[in-house]
């Protein structure tokens, strides 16, 4: 009898404890139990670490992504070139690491750009509405009616982009999805009682938007951004694959795939490695996005 009461008290205590946690603490708790998401995060961090430390690693391994060695082309993986060499005898592993830097950097910055545009436009149009809202919705419908790849291909063929310009293109064309989400969310938040209360206390529009609406958007933004970065890596590699992305000799995973495609019977390992890296990276990002969505969802019951 006594033990039963104790257990009940303990349970009660735990529930009480749970109740006191903030939303973010609760999300963190859920995330700690989600081994799939943690695994994805771990692999992604490892990949990022490997890619960032490329200069040091390549020096230790005695390889270089620029040195051409025409006496050793299409070499299979061996002890010197861990992933073999490409058509000009350059070390494939080193090129993959440097290519990863560009691929990841492009995806992250382009995503940041499109998120910034999408969030600001979404909040403004969701909050104020009016004619600007109508025009933007028309613009989005129009943009979505042109197959995205077609649009990207035209623009990047016209500008024949450097990595920086390429980021701009991806960023300025990718904001429609997040803008719709933020706009919808802002539209519903705008009518909540606490916003009306804030307005009644004389809060300015800017204060309401930044202090009261924006914090409620963070979870959507974080989830969308994780998935968006993954999608951008795919788009970048697809464009580079068709020859319209970042131009060689600057390596990205996409244009490495595209280059090695021409001789993939001679050296299939050159095709397999970049594709695998793209797949793993994107997979990790999608898993993280899904996991974060579950963890940040306030309706999830512990």
């Amino acid at each position: 009898m006594a033990t039963a009461t104790n257990i009940a008290q303990l349970q009660d205590g735990e529930e009480e404890q749970l109740r006191r946690l903030t939303h973010n603490q609760r999300a963190l708790r859920r995330l700690k139990k989600d081994y799939l998401t943690l695994g994805g995060l771990g692999i992604l961090l490892l990949l990022v670490l490997i890619v960032i430390t490329a200069p040091a690693t390549t020096r230790i391994l005695g390889i270089d992504h620029l040195t051409e060695n025409l006496s050793k082309i299409y070499a299979d993986p061996d002890s010197e070139n861990l992933l073999g060499t490409d058509d000009k005898g350059r070390d494939h592993l080193a090129r993959l690491m440097y290519g990863g830097q560009i691929s990841l950097a492009i995806a992250v910055t382009a995503s940041t750009l499109s998120m910034t545009i999408g969030i600001s436009l979404g909040m403004l149009t969701g909050y104020y509405g009016g004619i600007v809202d109508d025009i933007l919705i028309w613009l989005i419908t129009t943009l979505n009616s042109i197959p995205q790849l077609f649009l990207l291909l035209i623009i990047s063929s016209i500008l024949s982009p450097s990595p920086i310009v390429f980021i701009g293109i991806l960023g300025f064309l990718g904001w429609t999805g997040i803008m719709r989400l933020v706009r919808g969310e802002t539209l519903s938040l705008r009518e909540r009682e606490y916003i009306i209360a804030a307005r009644a206390m004389g809060a300015s529009d800017a204060r309401i938007m930044f202090q009261h609406i924006f914090p409620n958007l963070i979870s959507i933004v974080v989830v969308t951004m994780a998935i968006d970065i993954g999608a951008l890596i795919l788009i970048e590699s697809g464009l580079s694959f068709l020859g319209f992305g970042v131009q060689p000799p600057t390596p990205t995973w996409g244009n490495m795939l595209s280059e090695s495609r021409a001789f993939f019977r001679k050296a299939p390992h050159l095709v397999i490695a970049p594709g695998l890296l793209i797949s793993i990276t994107v997979l990790c990002l999608y898993i993280i996005g899904d996991g974060l969505r579950d963890a940040l969802d306030p309706t999830t019951v512990d």
């Binding site: 795919l234 590699s237 697809g238 694959f241 095709v271 594709g275 797949s279 994107v282 898993i287």
Partner: peptide
């Protein structure tokens, strides 16, 4: 999830 993450041109190749 894997199906969405694999680039389709690589899958084709």
């Amino acid at each position: 999830v894997v199906g969405n993450a694999i680039p389709n041109f690589w899958f084709g190749l």
